[in-house]
Design a protein around this nucleic acid. Structure first.
Lengths: 196, 196
DNA sequence: GGGATTGTTGACCGATCGGTCAAGTCTGCG
DNA sequence: CGCAGACTTGACCGATCGGTCAACAATCCC
């Protein structure tokens, strides 16, 4: 896929990514062959290797761009909100909404996270997300709104809650985002303990 | 591998599982071929198919037995503890300890959870674990110790925290169990909020 | 028109993998 | 000893997969 791409070329590239994403989500990465992808699109195999140097490259790009998309979505949702606790809440809601709209990606990300080849990409994605969360947490700690504990640990705990609730309620059960978001936010803020 | 197995046979079976577990953890399931496994053990390929009907069967058995082992560990740790909140805490600590001692299994489980073929086994394992947690939560709710919200949601949130903290601190960083357990327990009990 | 560049085809290749099997070895036991 | 059945061997098979390539079509621009 050397050098310049015309508009037609860019479209093809996006078609391939979209098509591969659907098939990867349905059957998994390894069981989906390059031949499956091009067949599904009704083109020859050479097309794939004109736009991507390998199957690996396609998934890597898919992972990077989807993560970027999610992050942009979070930042838009958070906007200029001054309250750090509310910023975290808005970030959680944006995540859940994004995954509801991109269910396909959940399975792909789960696979990639468990695969030696793609784990580094996912690791980097996660580091970025954790760093974002840590900033809000630190602001909250300074303001005395959030418990004064290691913000990195808190950030990972929050991400754990969000990812498991996404998996179970959004992806597996298809429940409405709001109900799940309320649950996630309530747990992250107050935990299990009753009353105060 | 039909019918009876002598002691020698049982040993071989366990050798194969242990050996496969190590290789699966190192390189992943798909990239580890049956030939790799038997070569590593220094035996012929037929040995594998004498004891297992397929590569799939071996991993399925590995997943089931490891989950059973973890659950026994949790029950031993919990013992006769009457306080439901404390029971949850003991369960969390037992989980973290088990994964520290069986790091190899974390990557394998992560892979299996993302693979269509093995997801059902993992799903079942998870359902059992969630059901255990829910029982403690319900006891705590009745006693007024735990917030009166959907116990299933709370259980998933707890599991999310534990699994992400295990991944990041125990598996990735190799930190001591106690420090991580304290963090997990504190977060699950009180969340982010400061003071009360 | 015509040449350069982009885009497309699909047969083909080498490698690998899960699984089979006919043949042979070891072990316990009557 | 001798036999039955547990266990082991490793060459082999069919299938699949990622990736290549020579040939060809479409498009752009001078």
């Amino acid at each position: 896929m050397r050098s310049k791409l015309t508009q037609r070329g860019k479209d093809r590239r996006e078609q391939l990514i979209a098509c591969a994403a659907r098939l990867f989500a349905e059957r998994g990465y390894h069981p989906t062959s390059v031949s499956d992808i091009v067949e599904d699109l009704g083109v020859g195999k050479g097309v794939f290797y004109w736009y991507f140097s390998s199957k690996e490259e396609l998934l890597t790009e898919l992972l990077k761009s989807s993560n970027h998309d999610l992050r942009v979505r979070q930042q838009l949702a958070i906007g200029e909100e001054p309250d750090p606790v509310r910023r975290i809440e808005l970030g959680i809601r944006a995540s859940l909404t994004w995954f509801q709209e991109h269910r396909d990606y959940f399975a792909i990300i789960a696979f990639a996270a468990a695969d030696e080849t793609f784990a580094p990409v996912l690791q980097r994605n996660r580091e970025i997300a954790i760093a974002d969360t840590i900033r809000h947490l630190k602001d909250g700690i300074v303001e005395g709104r959030i418990t004064d504990q290691d913000p990195e640990g808190l950030a990972h705990a929050i991400h754990g809650v969000v990812s498991e609730l996404t998996r179970h309620y959004i992806i597996e059960r298809g429940e409405p985002v709001d109900r799940v978001a309320d649950l996630a936010v309530a747990f992250c803020l107050d935990g299990l303990t009753n009353g105060r």
